[in-house]
Design a binder for these strands. Structure first.
Length: 141
RNA sequence: CGAGGAGGACAAGGUGAUCGCGGCGGCGUGGGGUCUUCGACCACCACGACCGUCGAGGAAAGUCCGGGCUCCGCAGGGCAGGAUGCUGGCGCAGGCCAGUCGGGGCGACCCGAAGGAAAGUGCCACAGAAAGCAAACCGCCCGCGUUCGCGCAGGCAAGGGUGAAAGGGUGCGGUAAGAGCGCACCGGGUUCCUGGCGACAGGGGCCGCACGGUAAACCCCAUCCGGAGCAAGGCCGAGCAGAGACGCGCCCAAACGUGGCAACACCGCUGGGCAGGGACGGCCCGUCCCGUCUCGGGUAGUGCUGCACAGAGGAAUGAUCACCACCCGGCAAGAGCAAUCGACCCGGGGACAGAACCCGGCUUACGACCUCGCUCGACCG
RNA sequence: GCAGGCGUGGCUCAACGGCAGAGUACCUGGUUUCCACCCAGGGGAUGCGAGUUCGAUUCUCGCCGUCUGCU
């Protein structure tokens, strides 16, 4: 794999949703996108990010309930989602929080499936978000 | 060769490559704080494509027993409730080790909640005459009567039948028929002796046998047990509300009001002006608003601690690839007298499972290995 | 983390330790021109594994599943 300077794929910890508040906010107010094995919620980062500098980075949260599998395989699903996010996150639009909720048959997903879904995300987010943004903008005016 | 048994030790199979995660330490960069400026220091914060180091299990699981730790409760004793229940030893523990008895297995071996039914109560359906005081349905035997089908009086409990269970069992003797009625053996009770710390075992005497089962039915006996749990508990603490202290400047007050004083003066309240701070505004005028500090309790909190040679988090130890090794299935060159073993090649596979306060035990899930002068079976020589 | 309850025909529920039942659903036949209603008949279950007992849905133990509560 050719690695370009400046395109490192590390540090997901800071880019994860870490609190129940965030998960609830995204799942309540976000828009839903269905993939084969996941239900993905997408919402703009809520307070305009007291991070002083440039626009906030997109963050990821993963939910795999006990209905899907036991602990070891649930951990693996979450790790694979994070791996896919880590590889593809530079292509994602900035300023959004995503929550990936595993569907009941998500046990046994492969990394390839998740990379495919993750690559499809930018287009789907743009499609969905522009629609809702214009709608909310109209209602706000 | 197959099927087992016991004991032991291990558990992402190894190596490498690329990308990546968490803790701690170092270094660097930026910010913050302190000090007298240059700058230095910091047991503050963030970042780093930098360096070092550490980073899941034997069950981390189930939460079935315990213990530590923490808070609450508590004079002592009893009742209620719960747990345990052969013996000895150890232990905090429902655990472990050794043994006894009982049960299972051809066997190596394995399993067992294994106290008390002569303290009391309850229950034992259906069937059966009778289910716990013993009795007698079909029957058997003797006597008397007989219209011969049987009836009456008495004896018996061996045989039949019912049942999970019918007041010891088998055999011989005995008798009208029978019966521990007598005898032998087995079982049971009781007593003594021997061995053993003991559960218990072995043996002798006596008793013809009296006390059916059920306590994972109530219960009795013996021993043990206070409640809750790290989301325990402790600390720090915005904001809001609360309490307290301090401040409430200067000038005028002629007259009136009011409080302190018996009264006046004086002071306070109050009224007016000026000054100060803030908001609007480019500035002035103008308009509007008015305190400061402390305290205990305590909410939010990526808070701190409890807290660890993994460590508190929407929770890190991962992803992909290559080669090697291993296992299974197929093919079958070949080896051997044979049972049988089996190169190359092809295909497939890698168990159960993720710490969350810590520790001990139990239970459950599960892969492959080693040892055995352990067992059983098949085949060949 | 802690505590507690419940698993019985496809579904909702019964059953002092003594033959596993009711309603509904399903199937077959009858009735009807046909369907429904109605009538008659039928099949189908104790979550799994041990144990106690003569006998277990019931009692005991261990697993599995499911639901609820507290924090």
């Amino acid at each position: 794999m050719v690695l370009q300077v400046g395109a490192r794929e590390g540090l997901p910890r800071r880019l994860r949703l870490r609190h129940r508040r965030d998960f609830l906010r995204v799942q309540r107010s976000g828009t839903k996108i269905h993939t084969r094995f996941f239900l993905v919620f997408v919402a703009p980062v809520s307070p305009p990010s007291e991070g002083t500098d440039d626009l906030p980075q997109t963050r990821l949260g993963v939910t795999v309930t006990r209905k899907v599998a036991k602990a070891v395989r649930r951990n693996r699903i979450k790790r694979l989602v994070r791996e896919a996010f880590r590889r593809e996150r530079h292509a994602l639009p900035a300023g959004f929080d995503m929550v990936w909720v595993a569907k009941r048959d998500a046990d046994g997903v492969e990394l390839e499936d998740l990379l495919h879904d993750m690559r499809a995300m930018p287009g789907r987010i743009r499609a969905v978000v522009t629609k809702t943004v214009t709608k909310t903008a109209r209602t706000l005016r």
